[in-house]
Deep mutational scan, measured.
Amino acid sequence: MASQGTKRSYEQMETDGERQNATEIRASVGKMIDGIGRFYIQMCTELKLSDYEGRLIQNSLTIERMVLSAFDERRNKYLEEHPSAGKDPKKTGGPIYKRVDRKWMRELVLYDKEEIRRIWRQANNGDDATAGLTHMMIWHSNLNDTTYQRTRALVRTGMDPRMCSLMQGSTLPRRSGAAGAAVKGVGTMVMELIRMIKRGINDRNFWRGENGRKTRSAYERMCNILKGKFQTAAQRAMMDQVRESRNPGNAEIEDLIFLARSALILRGSVAHKSCLPACVYGPAVASGYDFEKEGYSLVGIDPFKLLQNSQVYSLIRPNENPAHKSQLVWMACNSAAFEDLRVLSFIRGTKVSPRGKLSTRGVQIASNENMDAMESSTLELRSRYWAIRTRSGGNTNQQRASAGQISVQPAFSVQRNLPFDKPTIMAAFTGNTEGRTSDMRAEIIRMMEGAKPEEMSFQGRGVFELSDERAANPIVPSFDMSNEGSYFFGDNAEEYDN
């Protein structure tokens, strides 16, 4: 993207840094990872977990959730003011799984939030270390993106479920800051804005008074975040219109849905970061690795190297396929839920299948599930090659597409044709070009129609051997075009429920 120079890199967003050079960025990201790792080690000690239990991804998720809940100030305040039966607002906890007599047992633990905050700050040299908290939120978000298709949420806001490739980060909490905003897809931002506008339509006082002023500035800020994701002048001009509207209503909703559809071809720039579970960072720190000293990046080879040398386990339900569970977590670790499966298959070195073909449910185990038949197995999170994460949407291309997802959002900077089903997408653009945004709409449609099938995206960008740390010898991959490109292809993934 041309304006790259004016933006802070995501590592800076990730670490609240002012302008830093590459070495400083690597050190501050490393410091953040160190903090998460030290916190995780301490929690495993508190909970008396064995090494194996500490490497269980379900335990990692519970521990991450506990610290996120302990620092969720708004919710904590709300819980104190609106006490609900049987919930102690000062405590947080969740299921911890232990191996007892050759069987997995679930144990519900409860801790004072104050105590968890103390352990977290102690692991982070006394700081609140917001960057580390956001990092864990993005890992949870990436896992949700890989596990669930947001059909219901899309339909509720009037969008087409086939636009799911635009929904990265749709389950990120509001408090995820600049680093969170960077990884949100165009569809996620559109959905947040539509929800806001709908509230304004239904509630006369939404934009009024002292609160209304705050609401208005939040609305304009979200519009600017979305505008910054678009790469064409016409899309940005249309966002200006939406932002400046005196009284946002149905016309703005129409414009936003139009823009979301246009992003299936004229893709937005959305950041991709490899955020790993805390149970990967903990053992690495415990083994003596100093992330701050060595430096770390979320968008280069580092996460690949770390996963190459990590042992992570997962509980497996009786009829689940461990290899499929591994694929789910591998995609989440690489922030690749909406990437082209052919690119992923090449990088991973084994075939990556669409969601609907995987015999696996989510990673988390519900409290009512029976533990008797639970097994555990090693997650295979290694890769054959590594590639640089991208934040450009890439230019655009036609490809055989599917009944489910009709476009992709690249996660890796790797040369390819970008699949999208042009006739299906263009069919949504018939007729409606009147109104105050008509010239911009016409211009956007013209650009979409001009998108050429034979153009290559990320020209000359390749993948790298894991021994090639400096990215000196790019390998331009070859793809098996007979395979499906979309992950949520004609899909039956479970729906995400809060």
Rank of each mutant, 00 (worst) to 15 (best):
L379K: 08
G404L: 05
E18N: 00
K198Y: 08
A472Q: 02
T232Q: 15
R175P: 15
K90Y: 14
A427H: 15
G404D: 09
S141E: 06
A85C: 00
L328T: 02
N211G: 01
A129G: 04
K351C: 08
L315G: 03
G5H: 05
S326T: 14
R162H: 07
N224Q: 10
E484Q: 03
G300F: 13
V280A: 02
M66I: 05
Q409W: 15
A411S: 12
R19W: 10
F71E: 05
T171E: 10
E14Y: 09
E380Q: 02
K90G: 15
R400S: 07
A70V: 13
V109R: 06
V183I: 01
K325A: 06
G435L: 11
Q122K: 01
Q12I: 01
R38A: 02
L328C: 10
A153V: 14
I444S: 13
R400H: 03
R389C: 11
N211I: 15
D34V: 01
G126E: 06
L166Y: 10
Q149F: 11
R162W: 02
S269C: 03
L47I: 03
I425F: 05
M374L: 05
R156W: 07
V186E: 00
E252N: 11
I138M: 03
Y40G: 08
A129M: 00
A286L: 03
V329L: 05
E375C: 00
D468T: 14
I365P: 06
S50T: 03
T424F: 01
V242G: 03
G356K: 06
M222F: 15
L47F: 04
T188P: 15
G485V: 05
N124G: 09
R355S: 06
R175G: 05
L61I: 12
T92Q: 08
P303E: 10
K91G: 07
M448C: 08
K452Q: 12
L379W: 12
G228H: 05
K452S: 03
R195F: 10
Q308C: 01
T15R: 09
R99C: 08
G282A: 14
D112Y: 03
G485R: 13
D88N: 05
Y10G: 07
A218E: 09
M13N: 05
Q405L: 02
N397K: 01
F420H: 00
P354N: 13
L266I: 02
C275M: 07
N432A: 06
E292L: 07
L193I: 15
G356D: 02
L379H: 14
V408T: 00
R317S: 08
V299A: 05
E192F: 10
I444R: 02
S262Q: 07
R99D: 04
E252Y: 08
C164M: 06
L61R: 04
D255Q: 11
D101F: 09
M43H: 03
A471G: 01
A403P: 01
R317Y: 06
V155T: 00
E339T: 13
M32D: 09
S84D: 02
A284V: 05
G431P: 06
E369K: 12
V29F: 04
T378S: 00
E14P: 02
S84C: 00
E443G: 04
M137R: 12
F412I: 09
Y10H: 12
A332H: 06
N370W: 06
F230D: 10
T146G: 09
S377H: 03
G35W: 10
P283S: 00
I406Q: 15
S269V: 07
N483A: 04
E192Q: 15
Y496E: 11
M222D: 03
R204P: 13
P303I: 07
I116R: 12
E11Y: 05
I194W: 15
I25L: 01
M447L: 06
M191S: 01
E339F: 06
M66N: 14
E449P: 08
G485M: 10
S376M: 12
E455K: 03
R162G: 12
Y496K: 11
R38G: 14
D72M: 13
S383K: 07
S165H: 10
L68R: 00
Y296K: 12
T188N: 12
T151H: 10
S141R: 12
N211P: 14
D101C: 06
D16K: 10
P410T: 01
T350N: 03
D128P: 00
A179K: 05
D16M: 10
G37L: 04
S402H: 06
Y111I: 15
M440V: 15
G404V: 05
G404I: 14
N142E: 05
D145Y: 04
I475L: 00
A401L: 08
P410H: 08
E220T: 09
L306C: 08
S467W: 02
S353F: 02
N309R: 00
I57A: 05
G450H: 02
K452N: 12
R26K: 08
S297Y: 09
L306Q: 08
R117I: 15
D497Y: 04
V285I: 14
S402M: 15
A284I: 07
A260K: 10
T92L: 04
N492P: 08
V343Y: 12
Y52W: 12
H272W: 11
M189F: 02
R19T: 01
R65N: 15
G185H: 01
S9V: 09
E244D: 04
D88M: 02
A233E: 05
I194T: 13
V270M: 10
K113S: 03
E254Y: 12
F71Q: 14
T23M: 00
R446M: 04
T232C: 13
G282I: 12
G126K: 02
P354M: 10
G268S: 15
F429K: 12
G187H: 04
